[in-house]
Design a protein around this nucleic acid. Structure first.
Lengths: 279, 279
DNA sequence: GTTCCGCATGAATCGATAG
DNA sequence: ACTATCGATTCATGCGGAA
């Protein structure tokens, strides 16, 4: 599978990509006023203005049958949720994007903290945009097991957990999906239950592998092309390549770029060519 | 507890309520293009225009320390999610509302169905609006059991042992108890996991009792006043009254109004005065 | 080989303090 | 007054060492 990692600002570098050449764009851009030390720290009131030229290029490079999934969440400013994400959706529609769906990522391990006026924020948006109504969607690729999941988990659930989360929370979406082949499966919903990865000092990803994995399965087939214009630690490109898709990743910060490149290339080496190691 | 059920259009009837008299507004208005035969079918492009005069009245009747929780979800129109909810938030802020938070109601048993271009919709928005930044929030009223698995459950058991030992000695008891209580419950997040009601055939409520119950606990104390301007089958008013809050409910449709009134009054009768039945 | 426990670590937010 | 920085708060998760 081709792996194309590009160092530079995606606003410029996207122009090098041909029209209608990408099947899935999955990305998590730097959030407003977040990661200020590493990225420029885009302020909340400039965010839409900053993003629109990029989304315009993304619209160009996406195939008519392709999908753009945007992982984003607005921050709190002076005790209020900012509205720049809503404004972004409205403006992107004016650019020609179709806002097809909003998935919810329920973050099972949300950031701790206590405030007098709000609880911990445990969810993020996964906005699905399309170029046309005839986009590819491979629903069977993400079917999840039913029934047995809840039963097997019941053993491990304490009484407290039952009270808290209910025992019928069957949105199973784990790594052992292969174990469930042959059993009864159902289609998932638009709510995803995943924990963020933590305790990875070398590359702390903003989202777990399972997140891009799910969307790569859902919206692409093997041999298709996946693009992440804000590569970060490289999770999207790594996952896409691992799954037999071509991957394009763009990252503006050299430090992140190097980490992502090293991580992806070494991981893929051990993944696909272990025999070389022993010969 | 006072129960005030009003038959009529809330746009008019709200004008009869005094300024700054309500502690919590919890409501689920008719969604755009839903219930067409009943509410005259508010179209998606007229929705904001239709709602703004009502939200203006709601702003007037709410106490400065009060909260408005709006349960809403945009519908799909021609394969796209409508943007009227986003536009509504932006316009309500212009009216003077503070958009404090967005809770997610994860519907554990979402409506079944299968479509080629989307999965089942398993979540709804619970938009929290406030009049001022100094609103009442009783966070301790909604604490949940700590999310421990088997391993830390053992840890809790050892804590219990400590308490027992302390009790034998007769000293240090209080301190251990307070530590233990602190570990047993935690504050919830802004994601609510509730199933929709499916066991009540007589009245199909838009949401389960637990939904308004949670917000009534969180934002009011006993003796406070809860308002639902779109009463529907009466869940909000019933729950509020059951919990010792004054309830005001407005419903435009006589058919719905009668059902709600009967349901609430008979339920409360058996709830509070069972002895009358036997005397 | 398991299981168990300790511990660091987060796309955070508020309010007080400092320039 | 208005902005910038900083400490306190808090909990699910997974890694690594130990039993």
């Amino acid at each position: 599978m081709a792996l194309n990692l590009i160092l530079g600002d995606c606003k410029d570098k996207l122009k090098c990509l041909p029209d209608c050449s990408v099947d899935l764009i999955f990305t998590s851009p730097p959030y407003a006023d977040q990661r200020k030390t590493t990225y420029g720290g885009i302020s909340t009131d400039k965010y839409v203005e900053w993003f629109l030229p990029i989304s315009k290029e993304l619209l160009r490079v996406l195939k008519p049958t392709g999908t753009f999934v945007l992982n984003i969440k607005e921050k709190v400013v002076e005790s209020e949720r900012s509205t720049y994400v809503m404004e972004l959706i409205i403006e992107m529609r004016k650019q020609g994007w179709l806002w097809t769906e909003e998935f919810i990522w329920h973050k099972k391990n949300s950031f701790p903290g206590k405030w007098s006026n709000r609880f911990r924020d445990a969810w993020e948006r996964l906005l699905q945009f399309n170029k046309t109504k005839q986009f590819n969607m491979y629903q069977d690729a993400v079917r999840v097991p039913v029934g047995t999941w809840a039963k097997s988990r019941l053993k491990n659930l304490s009484e407290i957990d039952k009270i808290r989360d209910g025992a019928k929370n069957g949105s199973g979406f784990g790594k052992n999906v292969s174990n469930w082949i042959g059993r009864e499966t159902v289609y998932p919903t638009n709510v995803l239950h995943l924990a963020t990865e933590c305790h990875n000092k070398n590359h702390s990803a903003a989202f777990p592998d399972e997140l891009p994995e799910w969307f790569v399965k859902l919206f692409t087939e093997e041999g298709d092309t996946v693009l992440d214009p804000f590569l970060g630690s490289g999770t999207t490109a790594y996952v896409a390549n691992k799954m037999g898709r071509n991957a394009i990743g763009i990252e503006v910060l050299e430090e992140y770029f190097d980490i992502a490149k090293t991580r992806i290339e070494t991981s893929l080496l051990t993944l696909f060519e272990p025999q070389i190691q022993y010969e």
